[in-house]
Design a protein around this nucleic acid. Structure first.
Ligand SMILES: [Zn+2]
Ligand SMILES: [Zn+2]
Ligand SMILES: [Zn+2]
Ligand SMILES: [Zn+2]
Lengths: 139, 139
DNA sequence: TCTCAAACTGAAAATGATTGTCAAAACCGT
DNA sequence: ACGGTTTTGACAATCATTTTCAGTTTGAGA
């Protein structure tokens, strides 16, 4: 079984590097890019190789412990989220993020998709705005 | 006081290159990447420089005549859409796209955002699935 | 029609995030 | 400690997108 990567491994003990990435995300309230994670870890002393940061983030996404989305300029950003299905309300200025749920939206998406004969339906939904603090801080 | 976003001159006559890009998108039902647009135009004889393809697509997005979204691997894809606010039901296999509307979703997004004190709210919402044809064509 | 500056174009080089390589290091059961 | 497997990380390779910049086109005025 030459599974080049740890695809479906039964949760091995995390390495120092993997733990460092996970903890940094846990501590952060907003979405963070791989490059930023790498830089922060380096500043903090316990450096982790860039490739390892990418690998770790990707496996966390696969494991469902981290959410990923794309900024307007295409950069992938990651966040440790609850494991159940939800969406995000993200501040465009400071990145402060709130998890939100909308059962009605889920139903609507499935309904409109099946009405058009689409199967295996998934969806993406993000809300962007200026959080209260950032709105107040504006000129 | 017209819409503030368009700071350029009042719609100059499109160049041959701009027209070529626009027409190709009009003719296409699905979302297309800049690279693909460039390749298609080259095949069709009337080649257009890659940089110009990018510039033209960007200006069409700014003008609101083209929608853009990101594929899973971060590539930007473009589609000539109706100008009013809508969302997309996209086939993961063939790309066939249907424009859909959901007034209830719009209200919900604005409501949940303002409840959390967010202002200047926008949102993104896309639905993915396998269209009827692709579902049938599957083994 | 001629002139000139602004707008446009595109080949080539630069940018920058992400991925691939692969030898060395860490791990693990024996 | 020993062999096998997994992980790591410096570095090179990809690849979409942007920037450069010199040559081209356009259009309003003279
Ligand atoms: Zn904020
Ligand atoms: Zn949902
Ligand atoms: Zn659209
Ligand atoms: Zn909407």
């Amino acid at each position: 079984m030459t599974s080049g990567t740890n695809s479906s491994a039964p949760s091995r003990k995390p390495t120092r590097q993997q733990a460092a990435v996970a903890e940094l995300l846990e501590r952060s309230d907003d979405f963070t890019s791989a490059q930023t994670v790498h830089a922060r870890l380096r500043e903090a002393g316990a450096g982790v190789g860039l490739a390892t940061v990418y690998r770790t983030l990707q496996s966390m996404v696969d494991a469902g412990t981290v959410d990923v989305l794309r900024t307007d300029d295409g950069e992938a950003v990651y966040r440790a989220c609850s494991t159940h299905h939800h969406h995000h309300l993200v501040c465009r200025s400071c990145g402060r993020t709130v998890e939100v749920e909308g059962p009605a939206v889920e139903k609507w998406a499935d309904k409109v998709a099946s009405e058009h004969g689409y199967t295996g339906v998934t969806h993406t939904l993000e809300i962007f705005g200026s959080c209260a603090d950032c709105t107040a801080a504006d000129a």
